[in-house]
Every structure is written in C-alpha cells, then in structure tokens.
C-alpha cells in the first residue's frame, strides 16, 4: 500500500488526516514541521506528501527545497494549506508541485479521493501492478 507523509503543525488536523488515511488503508507518517519531516523521509520514502505551508522551524516550501523533488521522482506532493497566495503557488510549481489545494474546501473523504487520484496519476504503472 502507498505510503503517505502528512506534514501539518495543527495537531487536530494531523489527527483527522492520519485517521482518515489509515481508515482508507494507507501507510501514514506524520510530522509537525519541515525539520522533523526531513528526518522521517530518511527512513521512509513517501509516495505522496500532504504538505502544509505555514509551519514552525521550517516552512513547507523550505522543506521542498531541502527535500529536492528532482531526487525523488516517484514522490507526489499535494500542497494542502489554508494560505492562498498566487506567489506561493508559483513558487511551489517551480519546485515541482502539481497539486495546490485549500484545506477548508475538503472533507476528509474528499481529501482521500483526491489523494487516490493523485497517486494514480503520478505512478500509474506501479499502482496498476498492486
């Protein structure tokens, strides 16, 4: 099953996404900021990262720069933030992000539907095999 990394500083949201994703059958890692997430990805390479932008210590975009998507071709990133900003959207696109969503628009179920779709798009062959 695909492995999802949720990077979210707000504890209750972290709980919601973790619960929903586990219920949907995904393997889930969670971190509350970019630095912590960098540690996690060393041991667990995620198939998809659900990334918040406003984080303590290290923000979402900073994490993306450090993580470097060019070295992780198989990882899809969904920016999932309540902060809407065309500038940040541009910046995220440059860093290789394909999906940019507003958290408050999504129920957990809708989020899972989207994640499933995104995974199918980013790794069609791999998913087809499972």
């Amino acid at each position: 099953m695909a492995r999802i990394l949720v990077i979210e500083d707000y504890e209750n949201l972290r709980l919601i996404y973790k619960t929903a994703l586990i219920n949907a059958g995904y393997d889930v890692d969670v971190s509350s900021d970019g630095l912590e997430a960098l540690e996690v990805v060393k041991t667990h390479e995620p198939d998809l990262i659900l990334l918040d932008l406003l984080l303590p210590h290290m923000g979402g975009l900073e994490f993306l720069r450090a993580f470097d998507l060019t070295k992780h071709q198989h990882t899809a990133v969904v920016v999932f933030s309540n902060l809407y900003s065309p500038n940040l959207l541009e910046e995220a696109k440059k860093l290789g992000v394909k999906y940019y969503l507003t958290k408050s628009d999504f129920t957990p179920q809708e989020m899972i539907d989207f994640v499933t779709k995104a995974l199918a798009e980013s790794k069609p062959a791999e998913n087809a095999g499972k």
């Binding site: 996404y17 958290k103 408050s104 957990p108």
Partner: peptide
C-alpha cells in the same frame, strides 16, 4: 481569516469523520 480557517477545517474534518 487564515487563522480562523484552521479550526473551521478541523471541525469540518471531525464531524465528517464521525458521520462517515
């Protein structure tokens, strides 16, 4: 508004989880 959104999102999430 951004700060307000976060708890609203959480409420939405929890209620949805319970309903589902």
């Amino acid at each position: 508004s951004h700060q307000l959104r976060t708890p609203v999102t959480a409420v939405k999430g929890f209620v949805s989880l319970v309903l589902q």
